[in-house]
Amino acid sequence: MALPPKKTTETHQEKLQRRKDAEEAAMMREVDEAVRQGDLENFGERYGKPLAALVLLLVLALAAYLLWWQPSQRAAAEARSETLVSALDNVEAGNLQTAYDALEELAGDGSDAAAANAQMLRGGIAAQQGRTEDAVAIFDGLANDTAAPEELRNLALIRKVATGFDTMDKAAVVAALQPLAVPGEPFFGSAGELVAMAYLEQGKRSEAGALFAAIAKAEDVPESLRSRSRQMAGVLGVDAIEDVDALLEAQGVGQDPAADGQGAPAAPPAAQPAP
């Protein structure tokens, strides 16, 4: 059986040392708290007023945003939309110059979507009025505005090339639109057709035919453009028809008349012999 451990008897000197250590630890805590309290008071005296002013400024800024800036921005956006709608109404009514002039301020007011749309509309009006150079300049400005939405910039580039196609160098047309004339790109159909036409004028019939065929086979391209491209590819000797039966069915060609319940036309009666 194991014997219980002997209790260590603490000497008088050790007791005094332990008590001294405890008193020193308590005193250090009191000093530390006093220092902290003093630092806090000094910080408050030095920075209290600036901090209070900063908090007040933040509160006032938030109030100004909620009560003035946000409603002001909303009202400005509504006014821009009304300007665009009014211009479209004037275009439909044939008041082209009125619409063109009304959009001038909005078109020059920054590079947001409303301003970009105003520039696009002004370019279209100028083109419709026969002012080709003005239209090309407007579309070119929007196409090169890096702050404008990318979709509108690309559309402006296509409109610029389409408007000035007759006078543009065809190599420049290909260079400008080739990045957009790729299957899967949003403007593949429109850009691809312009590039293919430029190829034709350069004498590159095989490149033009292949691009027309690709447009004809693209399901996300409008049917009118696909049909036109299919015809151009055929003229250039490129087969752009993947499913002949489906194409004929879509065009309503080769249907059986009996399927409509009309049947074949009756044969003419046999001639009667003369008496």
Rank of each mutant, 00 (worst) to 15 (best):
Q119E: 01
G130L: 06
D166W: 07
V161I: 15
A118M: 04
L142W: 04
T167I: 12
N144A: 14
A114N: 06
A107W: 05
D109T: 14
A102P: 02
Q128V: 10
Q70K: 15
P179L: 08
E133Q: 14
E82Y: 11
D134T: 15
A75H: 11
S72L: 13
A175T: 14
A113G: 06
D169F: 10
L106Q: 05
A137D: 10
A156E: 00
A126F: 02
T83S: 15
L155M: 08
E133Y: 10
T132E: 11
A107S: 13
D134I: 13
P149S: 01
I138N: 00
K160Y: 01
Q73M: 15
A87C: 08
F139C: 00
D101T: 13
N144Q: 13
W69V: 15
A102Y: 01
A181R: 03
W68D: 06
Q73H: 13
V136I: 15
R153Q: 05
V174W: 07
A75N: 13
T163P: 00
A99G: 11
V91F: 02
N95T: 02
D109Y: 02
A77M: 11
N154H: 13
L88I: 09
G164S: 09
A76D: 12
A147Q: 10
A148D: 02
E150R: 09
A107M: 06
M120G: 03
E78M: 09
W69T: 15
L88V: 11
P71F: 07
A113K: 01
M120E: 03
Q73I: 12
G130F: 07
N95M: 09
L142Q: 04
F139T: 04
E133T: 13
G141H: 04
F188T: 06
